[in-house]
């Protein structure tokens, strides 16, 4: 990674307050990490290692207690359209039709309705939701909701897409399909992605590089490049693939506390 990183994180410390007990927790401490331009980076780690908190900080929902957080060399501040977020709970507005949900960011930019609907339709087609444009979110399955959420984020053309365990709430079968679709969609959009997950398989399947965090407070334990060609990334191909298996086992060992 010789070029300047898209996201540069240095000695980051993040804390959050446990609402029930009123206690302060250190989620992430002394974490340093670079995300390269156009990279698909997955972050894995045991629960409580601060993966999701990291996303919140980059998105701007949470202020760092210490350290620096930069995008393109400028400090990250408030939430903004340059950093799109895909949430585990979809966060589609239930009172808006799918097409209006997907066009929401464009509406915020002041784009006229016809124009923003045209763009939204294009992204609904890419995510295979063209037929569901006029439906309300509650009429969609979990998988379709998450496709719509991805379409909403991509339609807004962010510089980086932050994905916070996006497939954790859908059933196992749908998850596999969504992962394959994400590979395909990413091929066409090539946006920088930071993808947080607790599933090692998912991380290795999707990413160019997998970063393993230590148990909380999280910091980077290892960075594992995934040199599998994009064209081979389907479950039919990789399920029994020895290279995939080896990478998966290596990351799994790291997550479980071993060295590899």
């Amino acid at each position: 990674m010789s070029a300047a990183p898209k996201i540069a994180i240095r000695d980051l410390r993040l804390e959050y307050v446990d609402e029930e007990r009123g206690q302060r927790h250190v989620a992430v401490d002394a974490l340093s990490l670079d995300v390269a331009e156009k990279e698909f980076l997955a972050v894995v780690g045991p629960s409580g290692c601060g993966k999701s908190t990291l996303i919140s900080a980059i998105a701007g929902f949470l202020k760092p207690r210490a350290g620096t957080l930069e995008m393109d060399g400028r400090p990250i501040g408030k939430p903004g359209a340059d950093r799109g977020v895909v949430f585990q709970e979809y966060a589609l507005l239930p009172w808006k039709r799918v097409i209006d949900n997907v066009a929401l960011g464009l509406k915020f930019k002041g784009m006229a309705k016809a124009e923003r609907h045209a763009i939204a339709r294009r992204f609904l087609e890419i995510t295979g939701l063209a037929a569901a444009a006029e439906k309300f979110p509650h009429e969609l399955s979990g998988g379709m909701k998450q496709r719509a959420a991805v379409a909403r984020t991509l339609a807004n053309a962010p510089e980086i897409m932050l994905m916070d365990e996006p497939f954790a709430a859908v059933d196992a079968q749908t998850r596999l399909t969504l992962q394959e679709e994400l590979v395909r969609i990413w091929e066409t959009s090539r946006v920088t992605v930071l993808f947080v997950t607790h599933s090692v398989e998912e991380a290795v399947f999707l990413a160019d590089r997998v970063v393993v965090l230590t148990p909380g407070p999280g910091r980077v334990k290892a960075s594992v490049p995934i040199p599998i060609a994009r064209s081979r990334r389907s479950w039919a191909t990789l399920n029994a693939d020895p290279e995939f298996g080896a990478l998966r086992d290596r990351v799994l060992t790291l997550v479980r506390g071993g060295d590899a």
Partner: peptide, 19 residues
């Protein structure tokens, strides 16, 4: 999460209120 989603899509305070 609705508030966060809107802010990440670039909503101003007024847009957040209305939408």
């Amino acid at each position: 999460v609705f508030v966060n989603a809107a802010l990440s899509l670039g909503a101003t305070r007024l847009q957040l209120l209305r939408e």
